[in-house]
Amino acid sequence: MKNITLFLSLFMLALTGCEQVIDYELDEDTEKIVIEGLVTNQLGPYTVRVSKTLGYLQNGQTPGISNAEVTISDDKGNSEVLQAKENGIYQTKDLIGTIGNIYFLKVKVNGQEYTSQSYLKPVTTLDSVTYKFKEKNAETDEGYYATIYFQEPKGKGDYYRFNIWVNEEQEDDIVAIDDEVYDGNYGDPEIDIALQKGDKLRVEMLSLDRPGYDFLRVLGTMQYYTGGPFDAPPANAPSNISNGAIGYFGASAATVINSTVE
């Protein structure tokens, strides 16, 4: 199985600059185009990275492609050709992500065209945080555990991604949920991190479409796959890019809450 490093900050880590190694089963002589990008309802610029897979025996960050033509448009007639930066990075200048719009990505590389689309779904508001102190036991570290609260809209089919920072350092866990448990009710998930008094907590909640949720769920499985005798082999991460490219293009709305343990 081939390991390649994707700049998943563009999607799953919401522009934090982190990277994630993903396993793809690639033929020895296969070279794939890798495309990663995200549009949000936050201020831009938004970033798309275009790269290609390394040789079969090479692992690491995929080399950027500098001669691509990258365009993002929406279903309201807005369109922008992204500006090329370094290492296969392309960025918007004026585009503003809007809830309810469908965003279309088109990438042209060496005469080939790759496309994708994503619906920028609304996200509910994180309205409060509470803390509960727990003593140390066989399964729990001693500390304060945060519960976040939000009103989940009625109607099945909502998906969310959570990013968590403690004292300005982002946690690595990939947390993506659907609305099976909370549909139409008040959500109250507990964050499984032992905090101490004075710790600063930041939680970001992003809306996902179904392909984005499926993508992150597979990545979450990969994150904790150890290769042990009782582990099922992880599936390839899905891609919503056409023409055989791998990676992901998504659109998300974000809501953030900040709190300090007192």
Rank of each mutant, 00 (worst) to 15 (best):
M1W: 07
F7T: 13
L8G: 04
L10P: 00
F11V: 12
M12H: 12
I22H: 03
Y24M: 06
L26C: 08
D27Q: 14
D27I: 07
E31K: 14
I33V: 14
G44R: 06
T47Y: 05
Q58P: 00
Q61S: 11
G64K: 01
G64R: 03
I65E: 00
I72E: 05
D74P: 08
G77A: 10
E80S: 13
E86A: 12
Y90A: 00
K93R: 11
I96V: 14
N101M: 07
N110Y: 00
G111S: 07
S116Y: 01
L120S: 09
V123P: 04
T124M: 11
T125R: 10
T130N: 13
K132D: 13
E135H: 10
A138E: 09
T140V: 15
Y144T: 11
F150E: 03
G155N: 10
G157V: 06
E168I: 01
D173R: 12
D179C: 02
G184S: 07
L195F: 09
D199E: 09
L201Q: 13
L201T: 06
R202Q: 15
V203N: 03
E204R: 13
L206G: 12
R210S: 14
P211G: 05
Y213T: 03
R217G: 02
V218F: 01
T221H: 11
Y224R: 13
T226Q: 15
G227V: 10
F230T: 14
A237E: 00
N240A: 04
S252N: 10
A253E: 02
